[in-house]
Design a protein around this nucleic acid. Structure first.
Length: 271
DNA sequence: ATGCCTTTGAAGTAC
DNA sequence: GTACTTCAAAGGCAT
């Protein structure tokens, strides 16, 4: 099922990569905050597709993907140089997406002829784990089996937005610089850095995100973000807000009396 | 084992 | 149309 869809999309894109701006979504514009002094910006023309750059974290494809099918966001397999957003250097951001190997856009499993048959990382089993529970048919009703089968359907993840793509690329760099590992703290830093980027720099990521959405739509035409609603177990809204303003530690391990100011209002001193 | 924290942006829901 | 909610990633930490 996915195999066919993915492979069709692969062929389609190999031969007819969508033109810039041809997406079904309106072109997102970088936010205007802190950018007043900068000229209105149009998204830069992309270099031809398939202009790749190498990843600092190449990961060999698993020998047997049937054994494990887990979400492997940054573990881009070595696909003969098809790498994308894993460059460690901001300055080397590619002008194009490597359509078939972006961590969240890599081809799904069982692509005919593909040596590694890598599972599509946007498709993960429920809870991100491969279920291997013993199954006693005699104890299950048909309804239960059906419900179970439904629950086992792999989840197609949302495509990453511009900031998420930026985070993914810059996280390692920030961790190296700050010797922090806690993601909440790292993300605060990345949020400030994001706002410190120029419109042009941000535009690169908005363009990449637009292509992500475009490819995602082609790979999973019927998919909706709503499909994943409720799949994450969350606390109630009240509790959630309470924890944001209350006596819980923040990302830096402190216990603020009030909620921290939004990142955009923090001083522009970027770590 | 599971959810929270923390960020931004896209997309969904509710009114 | 507007406001609000959820989920994408990440990994340490709390429960």
């Amino acid at each position: 099922m996915y195999k066919d869809t993915v492979y069709s999309a692969f062929n389609l894109l190999m031969h007819y990569p969508p033109a810039s701006g041809a997406g079904q979504h309106p072109q997102p514009q970088p936010p205007l905050h802190n950018k007043a002094s900068q000229p209105a910006h149009s998204v830069p023309q992309l270099s031809p597709l398939y202009e790749h750059f190498s990843s600092p974290h190449p990961t060999p494809a698993p020998a047997d993907i049937s054994q494990k099918q887990v979400h492997r966001p940054l573990q881009t397999p070595d696909l003969s140089g098809f790498y994308s957003l894993t460059s460690g250097s901001m300055g080397q951001l590619p002008h194009t997406v490597s359509w078939f190997t972006h961590p969240s856009l890599m081809l799904g499993s069982g692509v005919p002829g593909h040596p590694a048959a890598i599972p599509h990382p946007a498709i993960v089993p429920p809870s991100g784990k491969q279920e291997l529970q013993p199954y006693d048919r005699s104890l299950k009703t048909q309804a239960e089996s059906k419900a179970e089968k439904e629950a086992k359907k792999p989840t197609i993840k949302k495509p990453l937005n511009a900031f998420m793509l930026y985070m993914k690329e810059m996280r390692a760099k920030v961790i190296a610089e700050c010797t922090l590992k806690e993601s909440a703290a790292i993300n605060q830093i990345l949020g400030r850095r994001w706002h410190a980027l120029s419109r042009e720099e941000q535009a690169k990521y908005y363009e990449l995100a637009r292509k992500e959405r475009q490819l995602h739509m082609q790979l999973y035409p019927g998919w909706s973000a709503r499909d994943n609603y409720g799949k994450k177990k969350r606390r109630s809204r009240e509790k959630h807000q309470e924890s944001n303003t209350g006596g819980k530690r923040n990302a830096f391990g402190t216990y603020p009396e009030k909620a921290a100011a939004p990142a955009q209002f923090l001083p522009m001193t970027v770590l």
